[in-house]
Design a protein around this nucleic acid. Structure first.
Lengths: 157, 157
DNA sequence: CTACGGATTCGAGTGCACTCGAAGGCAAGC
DNA sequence: GCTTGCCTTCGAGTGCACTCGAATCCGTAG
């Protein structure tokens, strides 16, 4: 998977120009991975593409986070744009953003460009949370490495 | 806070010797931070030191994760060893280890040194989970950076 | 002696994010 | 035309990890 390679490059990067380049590359990769063509996807197909269950996708819709179209039989049809939205939602959820905050954010998106300032605030707060989590996770990683090294030594669990 | 500096050094480190050195340094720092002296701590003091609520500490005890002593009045007394255990528990919880797995692990610890092999397996699995999470968080960070850069541009939320 | 903060136990309640089940509709294959 | 399988809606149920409340006990300060 080329994503890993790009992430490695990102983590090694210090100049902000290269950083931006990698971000764009990852975005392009996302688009081709999650929306391989323009044909609308059923709820099952969309779920498989983004790694959620059909149930969860319906739940997200009910909460106002996505609005897929409907075909003549009333079935959901997820466009490439819908899929991009779903990928964004899963990323944010995985990074600990709550459903409530996500609903607030998406409501702003639907209200249009004049809400960008407020959205920016939300994303800045989210970035801080992610950074703090990265720190905590690193600490946890250190702790498990320490445990792994200590077997046969320290007796304190 | 010196922890951050040590983490920076850790993340910049490639030789495994230096890696181990930093791990030990962090462990020593932990010990002095969370058990400043040898006097046993009350449930409120212990909670403040590790950043949990007294309620949660009692809950952990009820689940068999710590066994603080008791004073003559029946109050809990957390020793330095108990505190180390609590720090470990919070680190593992923060990194997404479930209460069930933690209970399993601690039960093995209490059974003594002959369970080290099994404990090692659990910690290896935990390390993998943490690494995966680091990857997911990085992806989420990239996504929020992308959003932050895109305001004024892309119209797709 | 009494008030007070903080300790104890126990079981019940909360919030989050799904997750499921029931009852039924639609379209392709035999 | 009937089965099969995925689709629909709706409300209810689940699992996790706390979190709280009520009733009671302990020890120091005034």
């Amino acid at each position: 998977m080329a994503t890993n390679e790009l992430i490695e490059r990102l983590l090694d990067t210090t100049e902000s120009d290269a950083f931006e380049g990698v971000i764009d590359a990852l975005q392009a990769l996302d688009d081709s991975t999650f929306a391989p063509d323009d044909s609308p996807k059923s709820v099952a197909e969309a779920a498989a593409l983004v790694g959620l269950s059909p149930h969860t996708l319906r739940y997200y819709e009910q909460e106002g986070l996505v609005r897929p179209g409907r075909n003549s039989a009333g079935y959901r049809e997820y466009s490439a744009l819908n899929l991009r939205r779903l990928v964004f939602l899963t990323r944010m959820r995985m990074s600990g953003m709550t459903m409530q905050d996500l609903k607030r954010y998406i409501a702003l998106v639907e209200r249009g460009a004049e809400t960008e300032g407020e959205r920016r605030e939300i994303m800045l707060a989210q970035r801080d949370r992610i950074r703090r989590q990265l720190r905590e996770l690193t600490l946890a990683l250190v702790t498990t490495e320490y445990k792994l090294r200590s077997y046969g030594g320290h007796p304190d669990g």
